[in-house]
Computed example of a mutant assay.
Amino acid sequence: MIFSVIGFMDLLGTIAFAVSGALVGVKRDMDIFGVNILAVITACGGGMTRDIVIGKEPPVMFVNPIYVLIAVITANIVFLYLYTNRRLPGSKKALNALLFWCDTLGLAAFTVDGVFAGINIGMNRLFLCT
């Protein structure tokens, strides 16, 4: 993982989408395995699809499994926190707000990541009239 803007956006988007996937899994009363699978698919699935579409093989999630590990750790923390604190007042409203903000943050972070991925493969030549 590169410690730069792109590395920070990767990390931020992975954590945000892992929280988002874990929240949806907990809202649907999934067990810890289901929450982990949903969090990993949410956090890493879009990047894997992007890598396949742009022809980058193998996808980054298989080359550098730190993103999958971060998604699993985040999902387990969310799962354990929400199942130990189920009786919080107003928790449904707070969980919906947290889901909204995590989705927004993850989408923003991975948009920046996708732009950098496009620039790295030379997609900027398609849009520049030089």
Rank of each mutant, 00 (worst) to 15 (best):
K56M: 06
A43D: 05
A16N: 06
V53C: 10
G90D: 03
L105W: 04
I41L: 14
V53S: 07
I41M: 14
G45M: 05
V72L: 14
G55N: 05
F110A: 02
I15F: 14
G7A: 02
F17W: 02
V53D: 09
V60K: 00
P89K: 05
F17V: 00
V63Q: 12
L88Q: 03
C44K: 00
N96T: 06
I70M: 13
L126E: 12
F33D: 01
G55M: 02
M9L: 12
V53G: 09
P58V: 09
V68L: 13
T49Y: 09
C129G: 08
V40N: 01
L11H: 10
G45D: 07
I70H: 02
L107Q: 04
L12P: 13
G114A: 05
A117E: 08
F33N: 11
L69F: 15
G46L: 01
F3L: 14
W101C: 11
F33A: 13
I73V: 14
G46E: 10
I52V: 15
F110L: 03
A117R: 00
L23R: 05
G90Y: 00
R125W: 09
D103K: 09
I119V: 15
G55L: 01
I121H: 07
V53F: 15
I2Q: 12
I37Y: 06
R50I: 03
I52W: 10
T104L: 13
I6R: 12
A109K: 01
T84S: 13
M9Y: 08
V26C: 10
N96Q: 04
V63K: 12
F8Y: 15
F62G: 11
V19H: 05
F17L: 11
R125K: 14
Y67A: 10
A75I: 06
A16Q: 01
F110C: 02
V40M: 08
S20I: 01
T42W: 08
T49C: 10
L105S: 13
A43C: 04
F8A: 07
C129E: 14
F100W: 02
D29K: 11
M48C: 14
D31M: 03
R87H: 12
M61H: 05
A18M: 02
I2F: 11
K92F: 09
D113Q: 05
R87C: 06
G25E: 10
F127R: 01
G46M: 04
A39F: 10
L107R: 03
A16G: 11
C44A: 03
L128E: 05
I32K: 00
M30Y: 08
G45L: 02
A97M: 14
A117I: 08
A117G: 15
F100D: 09
K92V: 02
S20C: 07
M30V: 05
P89C: 03
L82S: 01
A22Y: 06
N64T: 06
M123F: 13
V72C: 01
G25L: 08
M1L: 12
R86K: 14
L11K: 06
V40L: 02
N64G: 00
I52A: 07
